[in-house]
Design a binder for these strands. Structure first.
Lengths: 111, 111
DNA sequence: ACTCAATATCGCAATATTACGATACAACTA
DNA sequence: TAGTTGTATCGTAATATTGCGATATTGAGT
């Protein structure tokens, strides 16, 4: 009652859902977009860029790190975050595969 | 306090987050995958395919329909669901654009 | 009109997510 | 060593999501 039934689905499906969660909140989309154009960033950058509290941003960064789509390196007092290229390519492939498995021509006349 | 600050983000970012939610639950991934290989389906198909209750599946179908990624056509007592090709292509482009804006070579040496 | 079948919606309970102030912590600096 | 700075984590409140039984609702068949 209320708990996600991950046991009912395949490893791949649960994995896909997890990856999608990286993009399922505008703050995380904003963080990822910022990383894409800045190459790297610190928590403080994002506090200025987005209007969210430092604690909130730290929480989103942790989620993204848990998903694996970003990684952080300690640089003295700061932590430098950037895209994890291996995981990024993996997730990109996951989405590409799904998107490309739809054949517009053959499906368009269903409803 | 707990409410998503959609006002802080761009239309595009909120839109991206909304689209990602279609894939952010394994049941919805399973529904989409089923639609991709079956072209169309009804609620009852999915009740058999997935192990979830009819009410739960109906709810996921509604969410997918609200996002716009699927559409339903009434066929007598049943409702036939299928991929909404226009929206599908749109979302595919959104994701492709984001994924392609990452240049592995130039970013790989950041951390 | 009555029944059946398929789906949608309501109401509720359990859990997850989002947000932020307060606080702890770790590393640099004077 | 004391103070400063940048982050992480804790605790908590508000809200959203997930799941399902029960109950409409809608159309088909009798």
């Amino acid at each position: 009652m209320g708990v996600s039934r991950t046991d009912l689905f395949s490893e791949a499906q649960n994995n896909m859902a997890l990856a999608a969660k990286a993009f399922a909140h505008p703050a995380r989309v904003a963080i990822i977009e910022y990383l894409l154009k800045a190459s790297a960033c610190i928590n403080g950058d994002l506090v200025n860029e987005l209007g969210l509290a430092q604690a909130t941003i730290s929480q989103h960064l942790r989620e993204l790190k848990e998903i694996g789509i970003i990684k952080g390196t300690i640089e003295g007092t700061r932590v430098s975050y950037c895209i994890n290229s291996e995981k990024w390519e993996l997730i990109k492939t996951q989405f590409s595969t799904l998107f490309n498995s739809y054949n517009k021509l053959s499906e368009d006349n269903c409803c």
